[in-house]
Structure formats: structure tokens, C-alpha cells
Write a protein that binds this DNA or RNA. Structure first.
Lengths: 318, 318
DNA sequence: GTCCACGAGTGTCACGCGTCAATAAGGGAC
DNA sequence: GTCCCTTATTGACGCGTGACACTCGTGGAC
């Protein structure tokens, strides 16, 4: 049923260890004829080395585990993971996803049992898990420390910067009340605050709201006319946009709104919500290159996410 | 660095095979004292069996791979996968996710190399992959065949049923033009058609559109006043809602809209879009029970998705 | 003729685990 | 004392692989 390297060896008329060497890049010592026979036999039989066997003898599997945080997996993230999957596959690595919200113990068990080649997290990992991963000698890819470039702060900064350039002098920040939906809230808010400070504006007023129109309406009552609101994401912006309609506020005249994430909801609102997307295209191959390189060289792994470009998508709300 | 069963054995003063047997449920043959010593040693050392070793000797790993289709992973799906992860973990099984949109060859390689305990797909798997999976003797969980209950058809049916009950006599179906976003389009449309037929209404007019307001506006011109549009999802409905605003059409007076998926976009639109959600809560444990049961009993695996309840979320568009 | 170098390929070990036949100790029946 | 049965435990094997030391035969140098 299963094709093993012994089958390939028999079929090619050589020993199993010859097969192993040729198929693992140490084939330069063998004449082309033998190499050819082995390769042919392998592909003819559809030989696929057993991940278990490999992992056992090498001490680590070919699997890279990505820890997916408890957030909406939008098209951007999906494209990124897709590209990464293919790039890693091209180097014999297998990307598998794991929901980070699963019970921590089971995730730990999975990692100690599976011994992945690397663990990649889109969020800073909790100390306990980091300890587990590093204690095992498993490579870890995660967002860089505070000193590094913080993409989320940059997003907040870009929003505020845009609003200020459009002439608004009163900036507020709106974020979801539910912490589950507010994963990057602190960093983004900080980015907004920094931009205000840099332009000599007062600290932004911060608004927290549940994601429904009723509550957005109530929160809008606390804002002065002429305020520009940077929003945690497009959903927050959409809720506020709905609130504005309820209250008869004109957008962007009375209230300006800037979203984030470039999701369909921004494009489909009327008026379309001005939002900020990230171009991941070039970052995908860059990231996988770095990961693959570091993995094979044994060097230090790059931080994630890699340089990604923030792009303004101008709508009608600013 | 790594704790192996030999370490546990040494620590407990027994042989490695004793450890293996006790830790694998064959411990009833051993006296309680020995069992206790082994268990204690294992937990004290933090022993975690190597997935590779297990997989190698047993011919299949403890991993269950879920193939995630190329669709938005909303909260519903995420909750389901979360619950399933934990339930499976409780039975020693590890759920890992894989994007189905990755290159088919690399997915095949992953499966033949990894030999998962089961592969679960949210969509019918392409014949080539099925062949690969079944040829390997790997269990497959996928949506039931046409004869079974088709959840997507039911969704379409529920939409149309609702619209008809609200008094609309002219029903249309709107679906995305991009096939990537139209995964379940055929089944859902069929459900709508069936409901119309059952009520003696003509076949629904089918509209395909790109997901932007401009195109939605253009398509709306082709619809008579008083038409009720069942939409593939909430995004389609939102686009049409935007189009109605552009054209000055009153919703639901001139055009009624019903969405699907109960996404934030429906709740945040003004008026809120009437939509249909699915309650997965009870289905989660049911599904994992069935999967686990079939897996250990070696029986036939249940079809996916399991019975899930379709729920009307009344908004202001119908 | 002996020795060495070299090309071509093989044998063997170790990885960590689960299984099962085999063993040793103990105890009772005759 | 011998036999056998039960209980408690172990040894050995094999899963599929990669690494490395090793063998074998050939041909050239001296």
C-alpha cells in the first residue's frame, strides 16, 4: 500500500541507503546512471518519504506551525498564509495552522509531541508557551519587540496622519469594547496618539463601543462636531457611519471616519469608508525567504510580520 | 533535553515496555502500585510521547487535518473549529488546519507524508485528492452526497421561504460573479428555486455581480419594483443595499433584500439586513463525538457538516 | 607482486515507540 | 517434590528514515 524507500531501492536495483543518499542531496558521489535509475524509480512508484520516519531520525519534523490568533481571518491574512504555504512547500516544509484560542495545554502538547521545524505566531506568544517552545529548541517566529518596527502603531499613525492632512484638528480613536475583537487596540491607539503629539494636537479622545449601530449612536453624542475619528477597523467605522445616519450627521462634514483593513464592508458602505489596507504581496516571498534561510542556516529567525506596506484607500468619509 | 519513555522507565524503576503499556490503556494487567509509580514519574518528568515515534510504529499519526476552503473564516466557523480542537485534544487527537487553496500537490504530499488519522473537509474534495486519501487508507470526513441533507440548499430555501411568507411574489437570486467568492452558489440557488417552485412561483431570476456598489446599481436596473432578492451572502446584500440608495429605491418597499451568514456587515448596515445565521453550538460536540467514535471504532465516518440549525435574524430589509 | 587510492555502493546503527511472545516468581494441588 | 496456573514484568522486534563507516573491486605507481 505504502511505498517506502526500500521499495524504491528494490525497483532500482540498489540498496536502500543509496536511495536515501541520492534523494537527500548527497548524490554527487554517485554516477549519473545510478542517480537516474533511482530518481526514475522514485517518481514511477510515487515515493513520498514518511514524515514520521524523517522526524524520528532528525529530531524535528518538516512542519511549520502557524498560530492563528482569535481574530477574523480576512482575505489579506488568507492570501499571506496561502503564499507562505506554497513557498515553504517548495522547500520541503509543510505549513499547518493552529487556532491559538484552543486550550493552551493542548497546544503545548501538540508542540512537544510534534517537534515542528518552527512555530510562527502572529501575536506575541504568552510566556509559558514561549518557554515551552524554546525549552524544546524549536525555532520561534513572532512579532518583533517594542524596539522594532510596530506595524500596528504605524497603522494608527497613518490614519491620524491622513486625517490631520485633510485638515481635521480634533482627532478621536474608536475601538471595540470586546477585548476579543480588540487584539491590536493598544498599539494602534498609541500610533494615533503619537501622530497627534507630533502635530501639536491634544491627546485623542478614546471611545470604546460594542459593534452595533445603537451603541455607536450613543457614543457619537459624546463627540463634538468636526471631530475626525480613526477607527480600529472597518466594522467600527461602519457602526459609527450607521450612527451618523441615525443622528442625521453629515459625513465627512460633521464627523469624519477612517477605517482599517480594507475589508468589503468599507467598499460597500455608502459613502465608501476611507480605509487603510496592507499590501502583503511582496512581503510574502520576502518572509518565506527569510524563514527558509534562517531555518536552513540555523541562524536567528526574523521577526514577524515582515515589512508590509500600508496603503490608503480613499473613500468618501474623510 | 527531551523526555522519552525510557527516561520515565528509569525514573520509575521499571522497563520501557511497562511504561508504554500503562500509558496506553493496557495497564489493567499491572498492580496499582506499579501503575501509580509510572504515572507519577511521567507527570513529574513532563513526559510527552513523540508523535513521530507513535506514528511510525502505528502507521498513522494522531493528527486530524481540516481542509479550510477559500472562504472567509468568520466567527461561526472559528468557534466550530475551536470546539473541535478541544474535543479532539481530549481524546489525544490533534486538529490542524490546512488552507485548501494551497497547491494541490503540496497538500497531497503533506497527506501521504503525514498519514493523518483523518482528513476533514468542509467542501466535497476534488476527485484526485479523494483518491489519494482513500488509497492511503486515511479516513475522510466530508459533506454528505446529494441524497443527504444539503445545508446550503436549506439556506437558500429558508431565504426564499421567508421572503414568500412576507408576501413577496417575485423572487430573484443574487450571487457573486467571482467563483472564488461563490463557493456554495449552485446549491443555495437550487434551494431558492425549489422553494419558489413549491409555492407555485416562477423560477427566480438570477443576478451575478462583482462586489461593489457601482455594479450593484447597474444590476438593480434589471429588476422590477417589488422584487425580493435572496442574496448569496451579506456582502452581496450590502452591495445591493448601497445600489438602492444610489438609485433612490426604498428598501424593503421597492426592493427587499435577504442576506446570509449573519455577519457584522448585516448588523451594521442601515437598515440592518435581514439575514440567516447558523447555530453551531450544539453541533460542535455532536460532530466531535461522532468523529471520535467512528475513529476509534473503525466505523464509517459521519458526513460533515453535522445538523446545524438555520436561524432567521430579522433586520429591516424584508 | 605489493600497496595505495579511488570510485561505487552497502551495512548498520539510532531515533522513540507499541506490541506480543516469553520469562520469572510465587503459590496452590496432588 | 513436581506440575501447572496466575501475576508481574521484560526482551526483542519492527516501523521508515538519515548518517556514516565500511567493503569491494579496479587500476595505477613503485
Amino acid at each position: 500500500m505504502t511505498v517506502t524507500s526500500a521499495d524504491v531501492a528494490r525497483h532500482a536495483g540498489v540498496s536502500r541507503s543509496t536511495v536515501s543518499q541520492i534523494l537527500n542531496g548527497h548524490g554527487h558521489r554517485f554516477p549519473a546512471s545510478t542517480r537516474g535509475r533511482v530518481q526514475a524509480a522514485a517518481s514511477e512508484l510515487g515515493y513520498q518519504p514518511s514524515a514520521a520516519g524523517r522526524a524520528l531520525v532528525r529530531g524535528a519534523s518538516d512542519i511549520v506551525v502557524a498560530l492563528i490568533p482569535d481574530m477574523t481571518v480576512g482575505p489579506t491574512l488568507q492570501d499571506f498564509l496561502n503564499g507562505l504555504t506554497d513557498d515553504l512547500a517548495r522547500h520541503g516544509l509543510t505549513l499547518l495552522l493552529r487556532l491559538a484560542s484552543a486550550s493552551p495545554e493542548s497546544t503545548e502538547r501538540m508542540i512537544t509531541g510534534l517537534r515542528p521545524a518552527a512555530v510562527m505566531s502572529l501575536l506575541p506568544v504568552p510566556p509559558r508557551l514561549r518557554e515551552c517552545v524554546e525549552g524544546l529548541g524549536v525555532r520561534l517566529v513572532e512579532p518583533g519587540p517594542a524596539g522594532d518596527r510596530d506595524v500596528n502603531a504605524e497603522i494608527g499613525h497613518a490614519q491620524a496622519q491622513h486625517l490631520i492632512e485633510r485638515g481635521y484638528r480634533r482627532v478621536a480613536y474608536a475601538r471595540p469594547r470586546d477585548p476579543r475583537q480588540d487584539t491590536f487596540g493598544d498599539q494602534r491607539e498609541q500610533g494615533v496618539a503619537r501622530a497627534c503629539e507630533r502635530h501639536g494636537l491634544p491627546r485623542p479622545q478614546v471611545v470604546r463601543l460594542a459593534l452595533n449601530v445603537a451603541e455607536a449612536t450613543a457614543r457619537l453624542r459624546g463627540l463634538q462636531a468636526g471631530t475626525a475619528v480613526a477607527c480600529y477597523n472597518d466594522e467600527v467605522a461602519a457602526a459609527l457611519l450607521g450612527g451618523c445616519r441615525e443622528l442625521g450627521l453629515r459625513v465627512p462634514r460633521d464627523i469624519a471616519l477612517a477605517g482599517t483593513d480594507d475589508t468589503p464592508i468599507a467598499r460597500l458602505s455608502v459613502p465608501a469608508i476611507t480605509t487603510f489596507g496592507y499590501a502583503l504581496g511582496p512581503a510574502i516571498s520576502e518572509a518565506s525567504q527569510e524563514i527558509i534561510g534562517a531555518l536552513s542556516a540555523g541562524g536567528h529567525l526574523p521577526a514577524f510580520p515582515p515589512g508590509l506596506e500600508i496603503r490608503l484607500v480613499q473613500g468618501g468619509t474623510t
